[in-house]
Amino acid sequence: MNDTTIKEGRYLYCAVSIPDQKPDFSVTGVDDEPTTLIPIDDVGVVVHECNNLYDTDEVDLLRKWLLQHQQVVDAVGERFGTPLPFRFDTIIQGNDDRVREWAYEEADALSRYLDTLSGLWEYHIDVMIEDNELEAGLEERDERLQELTTRINDSGSGDGTNFLLEKQYNQRLATLKRRRRDERARTLRNRLSDITYEIHDRDTGERSINLTDSKGDESDRMTSQLTRLTLLAHENREKEIGDILDDVAAEPGVTVRFTGPWPPYTFTPAIGDELESEHATD
């Protein structure tokens, strides 16, 4: 038996508060497997039966599995309310009874986190700004840039001094642009913090498999990332968030992308991480 095979297991998608002990729920899951919901008191755990781990070097197949995982969690959210999602490829060895045993062990934590996240959803915000708008008026307001411009114009074009002056100019300009970008991002964050539960900055340099776009837009490279945020907010606040972003999008040279609601993947505690050690090696 290779290291991706298990005798019997359950692939875990999420936990969710359920209104009764026998909810009728089943959708197609990862690798087109049928899912079931296992009720444990007032909590349901969505699973499918499996006998192998979902490990592959094929990017397209991994993308498909990730998307199917997300679609199951989305369907649970639409039916029952905010779910507590588990990470992709979280598998517990054993049958439904083993899942119930684990859920009873984690009952207090599961109920606490589900109560905390009730009605809360994750939203993603990406704000881009054209470089010319980010630079607009900086030289007119900055004496150092004005001084460097004068010295550049007075020096010869082939002079080594000219090269050094232009380098200093670009460095000063980059510093001022960064300050302006940070100030505008901070202003937006402060406005959003009044109507959200939690805000995380997303690394502008991070790379990940994109589940929402088939292809990134790289047609215009003369733009800068103003900010990338992940919000945890109540569903009743979605319109207010949208109104704030409409104000930002109305500013010259600014583009805003607002997506959600998503299950709160970013804000989910690490329940179930110990299950990863239960992969069979027999």
Rank of each mutant, 00 (worst) to 15 (best):
D3A: 12
D3L: 13
K7I: 01
L12N: 06
C14T: 04
V16W: 06
K22V: 02
P23F: 08
V27Y: 06
G29K: 04
P34F: 15
T35Q: 13
T36Q: 10
L37N: 02
P39M: 08
V43Y: 14
V47P: 04
H48C: 05
N51Q: 12
T56D: 12
L61F: 06
L66C: 02
L67D: 02
V72C: 14
V73C: 14
A75G: 09
E78R: 15
R79P: 01
R79K: 15
R79I: 00
G81M: 05
T82P: 12
P83G: 07
F88V: 03
I91K: 01
R100D: 10
Y104G: 02
E106A: 02
D108G: 01
A109R: 06
S111T: 09
W121C: 00
Y123P: 05
Y123E: 02
H124T: 08
M128Y: 13
I129M: 07
N132V: 06
E133N: 12
E133S: 03
G137Q: 00
L138M: 00
E139S: 01
S155W: 08
G158C: 07
T161K: 14
F163P: 02
Y169S: 06
T187F: 09
L188Y: 09
L188P: 11
R189V: 04
R189M: 07
R191A: 13
S193G: 09
E198L: 14
S208W: 09
S208P: 00
N210W: 12
N210E: 08
T212K: 15
D213T: 05
D220Y: 02
R221F: 08
Q225F: 07
A233M: 04
E240C: 09
P252N: 09
G253I: 01
V256Y: 04
G260N: 10
W262C: 10
P263T: 04
T268R: 07
A270D: 10
I271N: 10
G272P: 00
E278I: 01
H279K: 11
T281D: 14
